[in-house]
Design a protein around this nucleic acid. Structure first.
Lengths: 135, 135
DNA sequence: CAGCATCCTCACAGATACTG
DNA sequence: CAGTATCTGTGAGGATGCTG
């Protein structure tokens, strides 16, 4: 999704208002850049906020918050905020989320396995382009 | 994806140069907004360029071209350009692409099936928010 | 620690015009 | 028909600072 249709700030109030079958939207939440990674991590075990941040690496706090909220709203992620000081918030998958995450993990595993083939395909592609654009 | 990490114009020359494990990049190509839809459509049968454009709907010609090129480079899509006038170009999945597309379709089907549950979850979430932000 | 608010930026994506 | 080239805006996403 670029793939990407989130935003939860005051501005664009959930989703691109665009006319679009709603299921594509959910699909984009799941396949969004950080959505994918969050779901896969949480499949392993529950995480605390900053724990998750470190585990994923290179996520800005803002994007992680946004992603988690979107996924929570869609009923895929459960947020458990303990009323203690300092605050402690645990994130885990709901049953629904677990199903989604398993699909996503399948895709991720496939991609990892097939990276070699992809790499080779790219070399071939680039070589062909290289040859044909010679002046 | 973001999800989305494509771009093939003269400017950013394939991918975000960012330091990032390469498999995440492929994953983002596959899960990108239009990547997902292209793969699913092509799983059905080969398509010509504008045929595919109509089938997906709401893709700009530019984005479709870009997406197809990225997927072709990754070895997921096969491009068959017939040297006739007017030009005719058929796109189909490679074996590699078919595998990926099946994973993606699984995810899409799951999402469609579970839309009801997602919708309910959202209503609950919004209701709770509604209640707690009352002044 | 786990956020929310604000500002800024650049690359993603659309619109338009042209070509083989 | 199937693209390329170019221009432009828009918003995803990062950086910073503040709060409970």
């Amino acid at each position: 999704m670029a793939v990407s249709t989130q935003a939860v700030g005051k501005d664009s109030k959930y989703d691109t208002g665009e006319a679009m079958c709603p299921y594509r939207l959910v699909l984009e939440h799941i396949t969004s850049r950080w959505g994918v990674l969050v779901l896969i991590e949480l499949l392993e075990r529950p995480y605390r906020f900053s724990e998750l941040r470190r585990a994923i690496g290179r996520v800005s706090e803002k994007m992680l918050t946004q992603t988690l909220q979107t996924l929570e709203r869609d009923g895929l992620v459960h947020r458990d905020a303990k009323p203690v000081i300092p605050p402690r918030v645990d994130y885990s998958l709901t049953d629904l989320g677990r199903e989604a995450a398993e699909q996503v993990r399948g895709l991720a595993l496939w991609t990892e396995e097939r990276m070699g083939a992809v790499q080779k395909a790219r070399e071939g592609y680039d070589a062909r382009k290289e040859g044909s654009e010679r002046a």
